[in-house]
Design a protein around this nucleic acid. Structure first.
Lengths: 211, 211, 211, 211
DNA sequence: GATGAATGAGTTTTCATTCAT
DNA sequence: GATGAATGAAAACTCATTCAT
């Protein structure tokens, strides 16, 4: 076999691996959304994505790795999209609002996976849990950063940026966690975002910014 | 057997039953705290509280009932203590702060059981889930009520009471859900309460109240 | 305590014991009829006859003894009523018909218990099984006897009495065993008896008796 | 993988599945013969046929399905062999005798499984029970048919065909149900068949056929 | 690379039996 | 005599994981 074709093979292999992993995680997330993590068996995942159980173990060393990959995927989404939204927004406070709004939108799109994050924690190994917590901190940072910037710009009162940042994230997560409640009171996402912006952000405008 | 001793027997039985139920739920909560709901087997619960598996089924018809009892116990605490704290507090805004503070304190004392509430949802039957959601709404109500009162008294800006009430509850819950985080940043409960009061409550004071 | 009152006590004890045993077996049969032997627990029997589980073990050494007692009770019925019916009947063939008819009637009254006899056999100890088989032979004997007599009287053809006797018993049992079938074809007991008498008995009338 | 080898795989799989199912049902029947249905655990069946418990559930969704398969297997035998025996026999009465004889022979070969049919009824679901009753009616039909034909041909007296047909089946079943008895009186199958033919069939010959 | 048959430890639940009161 | 709380072995069934092909 020539060197080039070996290279080509390696590329094909890589592409295939990536495709397979995505395929598997997709199926896992889909099923876990419907039934909760623990009721989803490896057999069910295999069946749902049309491969054999054995193959699952070729790509993931055990079930935890699949769950981890699923969660990582949502968190990835936050890491990508929230900074983009911030970049696009105008002033300091607008950036805060944009960050929060986008955060909420991602949560809404991946509602079940977000819930998953809260549900599985205890079932993960120390290592796995740590990895997810670290990633979550990464998604939190942009929120803290925009709040800090807005405070420094004098547009927000002198609130604790860490606290408000975390509150914003928590409030976004709550859209998923308490979805049953918001459904009961017939609250839609846009109204939710709007009201929370008033309650959490606009209430903390500085005297200057208020004008 | 005399009538009196029969009565006595009945009382003893009742007391024993109550003791056993408490014992079982305690053990269950303790274990679930450590390992997550699904990783706790009936065997483990039995062992942990020093009784046989069979006896578990004398007091609870199935595993779900134990989980339900555990959750109900925390929620009961909220139902009892939050209104008391409100009653004792002075002005409308003080009542809001008192309600939130007490809510946080209960969460702190029952940290693991609160986390449980978020974790188990998928594992419960429709009926069981509904029952817990209804109870949770009951714990939310006092928070909404004090906010409403404070708004009507003109001490809080015209925020949406439902939103702020829910935010207060969610923020309290977060003390349990994200405990790993607050531990990492070395934040203690009192500081947490204090900062959240500033961010969520005091920021929403009306112009009048601000003076 | 005086000798007389001791005697009296003994009698009372005996009467009570008999009453209790009857009470327990009654409950057991009632439940087994509804649900089959294996689905009836000692707890259920105790509850159904309003005594404690512990008391069951005062009167029967284990569950098998209760089942045995239940079966013995049906077989007792055959031992008592079939000979009576025979005694009352007129000629040799009438005695055969009377025996079979009465056998069928007892089966009908204790339908579920008869089925029980066929169902439990394998679940019993060697000893218990033997005891029931012996008792069953005792219920068979009268049938064989009347057939033998009818043959010797020259009213029945020279059939094998043992065979015909057993067939008569088996046919009566079948009324219980295949009750679902007879219900489906809407056959009542009297018609069943009538047809079987024609097919099994009258068909075997001797030339002489036929006139 | 080539199309041919996929086909081959499918065939191998099918063959293996069939082999396994037979293997499992065989083991189940063997054990149930010895101990009664309820005393045979899935563990025991697995052990007896040298596979794991888990595998049992690959081939049968639950225990009932194994019992059902076992019973269906016996009934299948009746459905196949009795009509064949009828086809081969000569005159109308010979057909009746041939049908009954063959029925008895199948019972003898599958003695324990026949007993099973009578024992399990209560343990089956409504659906399962119905399925077995329907199958049993199918095995009864040929017997009723030959009797009807013999009556219409004028070779049997005007007996109720349904009754006699059912009696023949019941009598054959009894060879299994009361085997302990026939063993005690040292009666072998051929003699049993012979005597029953005299008692049930020949006794019902018409005047014409008797000559 | 891919399969899926096979495993067996683990889960929830039931129930005959015992024994302190 | 009578109770019923307590036991624990055993049942049916599930599922993460392995491995021969």
């Amino acid at each position: 076999m020539s060197a080039e074709s070996e290279d080509l093979n390696a590329i094909v292999r890589g592409a295939r691996a990536e495709f397979r992993e995505r395929q598997i995680v997709d199926a896992a997330v889909r099923l876990m959304q419907e039934k909760g993590t623990h009721s989803v068996s490896m057999q069910a995942i295999a069946k749902s994505c049309g491969v054999s159980v054995g193959l699952l173990y070729k790509y993931f060393s055990d079930k935890e790795q699949i769950v981890l990959a699923a969660i990582t995927r949502v968190l990835e989404e936050f890491r990508l999209r929230v900074p983009s939204a911030i970049a696009v927004a105008g002033g300091p406070v607008d950036k805060v609002i944009a960050a929060f709004s986008e955060f909420c939108r991602v949560v809404d799109e991946q509602r079940h996976a977000v819930v998953l994050t809260y549900q599985v924690s205890r079932a993960l190994s120390k290592q796995g849990l740590k990895s997810i917590q670290d990633q979550e901190l990464e998604t939190l940072q942009p929120l803290v950063d925009v709040v800090t910037a807005a405070v420094e710009a004098g547009d927000l009162r002198d609130v604790n940026a860490q606290t408000l940042g975390h509150d914003l994230m928590a409030t976004a997560h709550m859209w998923a966690l308490k979805h049953w409640y918001f459904q009961r009171i017939e609250l839609d996402l846009d109204t939710y975002i709007d009201r929370q912006v008033r309650t959490l952000v606009l209430s903390n405008l500085s005297e200057t910014a208020r004008r």
